[in-house]
Write a protein that binds this DNA or RNA. Sequence first.
DNA 1: ATCTAGTTGCGACTTAGTTGCAACTAGAAC
DNA 2: GTTCTAGTTGCAACTAAGTCGCAACTAGAT
Lengths: 148, 148
Amino acid sequence: MPFPQTEIPGRLQSQLSERGVRMTAQRRAILSVIETAKKHLDASSILRKAQKMDATVDRSTVYRTLELLKRHGAIDELDLMHMEGERHFYERKTGRDHLHMACLRCGKITEFESELFEDLKKQLERDCRFHILVARLEVGGYCAACRK
Amino acid sequence: MPFPQTEIPGRLQSQLSERGVRMTAQRRAILSVIETAKKHLDASSILRKAQKMDATVDRSTVYRTLELLKRHGAIDELDLMHMEGERHFYERKTGRDHLHMACLRCGKITEFESELFEDLKKQLERDCRFHILVARLEVGGYCAACRK
DNA sequence: ATCTAGTTGCGACTTAGTTGCAACTAGAAC
DNA sequence: GTTCTAGTTGCAACTAAGTCGCAACTAGAT
C-alpha cells in the first residue's frame, strides 16, 4: 500500500472537513486507523483497531464510514483475489493508481505502479469514451519467491 | 462477455472430461447454463437456470462446481464493482483476457480487449517475475451514453 | 444557548457462501 | 454385465459479511 512519507497525519480528516463532512469522535478513530495502517485492512480489523481508540465505535458505523469514504473517493476497495473468505480490504487512495499482485501460494500482496496502466486507462477514456472513476487491477499467481 | 460464435456447444464439458473430471447430470446442467449464458450470471441465477434442466441441482453443488471450474481455469470470477450486493459473477474463460467497465449510472457492463492490457501483463511477468494465473481489471465510471 | 440535519449504537435481519455427513453414482476393472 | 470405490450429491445447519429501521444523540451553524 502507498505510505507516502510526505503524508501529514490527519490529512484525510482535514480533507473531508473541507468537503463539509461532519467530524465525530467515531469517524476520527476510523480515519486514523486507515491512515496509519501498515497493511491492507478489512472492515472487522478496522473495527477492532478503532474500538481501541474509542470503545463506542460500532460495526455499522465502520461500514457506513467506509461507504462515505468510497463515495468521496478517499479510499479504494480491494478484493485481493478473495484468497481467504469474501471480505474486502481498504486503502487510502493516493494520487496514482497501482495494481495488486496476490501470490496464491504464500499470500503476499505486492503493489506496482506502471505507466502502461496509465496508458491503458487513457485508452479507455479515449476509445470507449468512458469516464473512469475507479480502476481496480488485481492479479493472482505466483510471486518471484514461490515460482520455482 | 465473450461469445465466440465458433464455440462448439458442450465444449466446456468435453474439455473437463479430457482432464479426468467426472461428469454428472448436475454438472452437465450447470456447465450448459454457463456455456449458453447471454450475460454475466451470479451463483443464484446459475442455480435457478440449472434447476430448470435438472430439478435436483442444489445450491451447494453450484458453489462446489464453480470452485472446480475456477481451479481448472475454465471460468473467471468477476465482482463487476459490486454495484448491487456482494455477489460474484462468472464467465467462460476464453483465450484472451478482457477488462470490464461498469457504468455506475446505468449499470451497463462493457467488455474490452486491449493490446496494452497484454503488454501490462507481460511487464509484470518480466519486471516483477510474477507468474500470472488470473488477471482481473474492473473499471467503474460513466459510459459514453451517461456522461453528458 | 438554541436548533436541526446528520450521525450513532443497537439489535434484528438479509444475503452469500460453507461444511459434515450419510446416501448415491461414474466410470474403471474385471 | 457386475463389482467396486473414490468422487459427488442433497440436505440442513451453520458462518461470515454486510444492511437497515429507529430512537437517542450531537456537530456545528445561527
